[in-house]
Simulated scan of single mutants.
Amino acid sequence: MTDPPRAPASVSVPDSGKYLTSSVAGAAKILVVGPLGVGKTTLVGTVSEIKPLFTEAAMSQAGAGVDTAVDCAKTTTTVSLDFGRLTIDGDLVLYLFGTPGQQRFLPAWRDLAKGALGALALVDTRDLTASFDALGNLEDLDLPFAVAVNTFPGSPRYGVDDLRSALDLLPGTPLVTCDARDRASSIRALAALVRHLIDTATEPS
């Protein structure tokens, strides 16, 4: 698999505080989606310049039959949303909304999608089929998205063409790799999405 594209040189993360700076000229609502345990909460927490909001709850025995994740050690799950904020180049703010990973939370998922400009879809090569529901939901909502393969220790590595075929991605859909635990890597994935949204918005009709 090729390395993820580098973020443009203009992308930087200022030492932001609780409030936005006066240089901010625009904002975008972005979803971070994917199956249970793919790293959505981790990515939002990694890049957020403010204290992120998490709605984690302990995974119960009652949900053991339906809440399955590749990482068997996972003990909590997002039940509403994750929220964080990232300022890019001092003038563009991304409001990041992490969605629940289980399909039974789809009504809440669709509510979160209202007003979103696009989405970053995380996938795990240890179980690519687990991502099909999230990708299908984005297509149903007609929401532009980029796909980021979150690398886990020991996870299989596949070529770009094989991944695109397995995930049934359109040729124009960005496909990058990232490590949700690494700030720079996660920002590069979000930058790939932002570039895609700009390209999509400026395409001739």
Score class of each variant (00 low, 15 high):
2 T>W: 14
4 P>I: 02
6 R>V: 05
9 A>P: 05
9 A>T: 04
10 S>E: 12
12 S>Q: 14
15 D>K: 13
16 S>L: 14
18 K>D: 06
19 Y>M: 11
20 L>V: 12
27 A>C: 13
29 K>P: 10
30 I>Y: 04
31 L>Q: 10
32 V>T: 00
36 L>K: 12
39 G>D: 05
44 V>W: 01
45 G>V: 13
47 V>E: 03
47 V>R: 08
47 V>N: 03
50 I>T: 09
51 K>A: 07
52 P>I: 01
53 L>G: 07
62 A>E: 07
71 D>R: 14
72 C>F: 14
72 C>G: 13
74 K>V: 04
75 T>V: 10
77 T>Y: 04
78 T>W: 02
81 L>F: 15
85 R>S: 08
86 L>D: 04
88 I>K: 05
90 G>L: 01
93 V>M: 05
93 V>L: 07
93 V>F: 11
94 L>V: 08
100 P>F: 06
103 Q>G: 11
106 L>W: 10
108 A>E: 08
109 W>T: 02
110 R>H: 08
112 L>I: 05
113 A>C: 00
120 L>V: 00
122 L>Q: 00
126 R>D: 04
128 L>M: 08
128 L>H: 07
133 D>I: 01
134 A>M: 06
136 G>Q: 12
138 L>P: 09
144 P>T: 07
148 A>T: 07
149 V>R: 13
151 T>I: 13
153 P>I: 12
153 P>H: 09
158 Y>S: 12
160 V>W: 06
166 A>K: 07
167 L>Q: 07
168 D>S: 15
169 L>V: 06
172 G>S: 13
176 V>A: 08
184 A>P: 05
185 S>C: 01
188 R>H: 13
190 L>R: 14
191 A>Q: 02
191 A>M: 02
194 V>W: 11
198 I>V: 10
198 I>K: 10
198 I>A: 14
202 T>P: 00
204 P>C: 14
205 S>R: 12
